[in-house]
Amino acid sequence: MTEEPYRWLEAVGNRREYVREQLKGGSPVLGASLPDGILLLGIGGGQSKVFELFDRHALAGLGHPADIEKIRQAAIDAAHMESFTRAPEDVSLRRLIGFGLSPQLKTNFEQIFSAPFLVELLLAEIGSSQEHDLFSRLHFDGSFQNQHGGIAVAASDADAESAATTWLTEANVPAKPRGQAAEFLLQAWWCLSANKSFAALPPEEERRNGWREAVRGKTVEIGWLARTTPRLARYQTLTLANLDL
C-alpha cells in the first residue's frame, strides 16, 4: 500500500512526458494587445486554431483538434450561461479560467486512467485599454498564468515560447499598427516553427520570405477583438489581405 503514492507520481510524470511528446511539432499561436484591439494569430489547416468565445473573448490553441474543440465548447457554454443568467458584462476570463476550465483540465490530467487533453491554449479578453486587456496562458495540466496587455505566445516548447515573447516585446510590437504587428507575429511564428534561435535570428528579409513560404497551402487564421465597436460582439476574422500582407 505504501508504494501506491509513488506509483501515482510516476504515472503522472509519465503522463506529462507523453503529453509534451504529443504536442511537439504543434503549430504555435500568438497574441498581441495593440492600441485598437487584440490580435490573435495561428496557422493551421482550416478553421482550427483561433476562435471566438464570447463578446469580448477569444481563444487560440495548439494540440489535438478534438481536445481543443471540447474545451472551446465548454468555454462557450459557460460564457453564454453566465451571460444569460446574469449579464454579458459579468463574463470574465479570470472566472472562466480560474473556476471553470482550469479545474476541469487539472482533474482530467490527474485521472490517470483516462486520456489527457493534448492542448496548449491562449485566451484573450479585450478591455477598455491595453492595460486592461487580459491574456491567459492555459496549459494541458490546468495550470495558467494571467497577464495584462503585452504579448502572449503558446507553443509546445516553453523556452522557445519565452524567447519569442521576449523578442516580440523588445520589438515593441504592442505599440505598432495592426498590419505591422501581424507581420512581426508571423515572423515569430516562422522562427518557432522552423526552430530558429531567437538569440541569432536570420535577417529580416529571410524572416519575411520564410513565413510567406511556410504558410503556402495552409490557412492563416487571424482573430481580431476590436476595442470599440457599435456592437457587443467585438470579434472578427481577418485575412492577410485585410492587413495588406
Binding site: 478553421q47 476562435f51 471566438e52 468565445l53 464570447f54 465548447q73 462557450i76 451571460s83 460582439a233
Partner: peptide, 14 residues
C-alpha cells in the same frame, strides 16, 4: 433568449 441563442449557435457551430 434570441440574442443569446443566435450568438451561441454562431459561435459554437462556427
Amino acid at each position: 433568449v434570441l440574442q443569446t441563442s443566435f450568438e451561441y449557435y454562431r459561435r459554437s457551430q462556427l
